[in-house]
Amino acid sequence: MKSNQLGNSKLHVSEIGLGTMSLGTDRTKAISLIHEAIDNGVTFIDTADLYDFGLNEEIVGEALRDRRDAVVLATKAGNHFEVGKEGWYWDPSKKHIKAALKDSLRRLKTDHIDLFQLHGGTIEDPIDETIEAFEELKEEGLIIEYGISSIRPNVIREYVKKSSIASVMMQYSILDRRPEEEMLDLLHDNNISVIARGPLAKGMLTDQYKEKVKEDGFLDYSKFEVIETVNQLSEIKGDQRNLTQTALKYALAHPAVATVIPGASRSEQLLANLTAQNAPDLTSEAIQNIKAVSKMNVYDKHR
């Protein structure tokens, strides 16, 4: 599979990675799926300490026991929780970030994290302190690179100005084109890579879209508008690629995007996503046609 450099770092990631949030808690099934992903060229695995309150990391760690060197491993921190207690709260303090990293290392059964990410963030955060925590962890060799997972333009701009982040994870798809207006060019110009989550818009950009679309639609799309837009996409995609491949190729078309991380909970989903690696890239004309039938959404409340 094609791989791309993550920012200016030494890390290179497969253009299609695996987001593990939807893996579930069946260890045998989840581990088998991770192994299948790696066997089919995936070298980027993304998890978070909050997913199933640490259990997801434990499963990922078990799956990578003999395959750690085969992947770039990413996880996230910032949501403070205690195992056995309900709920969590936002905590971007240096103390928590460092403690969370140690817990993640233990659960993931590794001595370092390749990409450690802040799992959110607001403009009211002690951003300088948070950056200091990541920089110290990097100096200590406990992490290789760090990034943020955010869709808040004001927060992202602060990290672009003040930090040495390698990446920004953000939701990006044909149905969520918000990053195009403010973020993608900015990040590309600063040699910061985008990790695109949600590239299939919760399954609404697959051939099963009629089953996946919700009554309340998606972002500023009504249910009817989602169906109408995807119907038009089905005409644009042509015979060379299916809807899933078209959606993934669209997110990968911008040079800022290093990898897309569609989730998968079944082998069939995983393999369907991975067929995109062999599909032809979208032409400039196809990209313009896709933009013409979809909305140029903008960030509203996420400031």
Rank of each mutant, 00 (worst) to 15 (best):
V83S: 14
A63K: 08
R65E: 15
R67E: 00
D46T: 10
W88V: 03
K76P: 05
I59P: 11
F81N: 10
S104Y: 08
Y51I: 10
L33I: 02
G54I: 12
R68E: 02
V60K: 12
T75G: 10
R65Q: 14
E82N: 08
L105E: 03
L50K: 06
I59M: 11
W88D: 04
D69K: 15
K109T: 07
F44V: 01
K94Q: 12
H112Y: 15
E62R: 11
H112V: 03
D69H: 15
D111F: 03
E86P: 02
H112E: 07
F44P: 03
A100K: 12
E86V: 04
E62W: 02
F53G: 00
D52A: 15
L33T: 01
K98Q: 15
T47L: 02
D111E: 15
N56P: 08
K76L: 10
F44R: 00
H96D: 04
A77Q: 04
A99I: 04
Y89D: 08
R107K: 15
L50E: 04
N56D: 07
G54E: 10
L101M: 12
K95L: 11
L108I: 09
L108R: 12
D103H: 13
W90P: 02
R107E: 03
V83C: 01
L64F: 05
F53C: 07
W88E: 06
R106E: 14
R107Y: 11
K76Y: 04
T47C: 12
A48E: 03
K94F: 09
I45D: 07
K29I: 03
V71R: 05
K109F: 00
V42C: 08
V71G: 08
F44W: 05
D39R: 14
G87D: 09
N79H: 14
E86S: 14
K109V: 04
S32T: 13
G41I: 01
L55D: 07
T75Y: 07
A70M: 13
I97P: 07
L105Y: 12
Y51Q: 02
N40Q: 09
D49I: 01
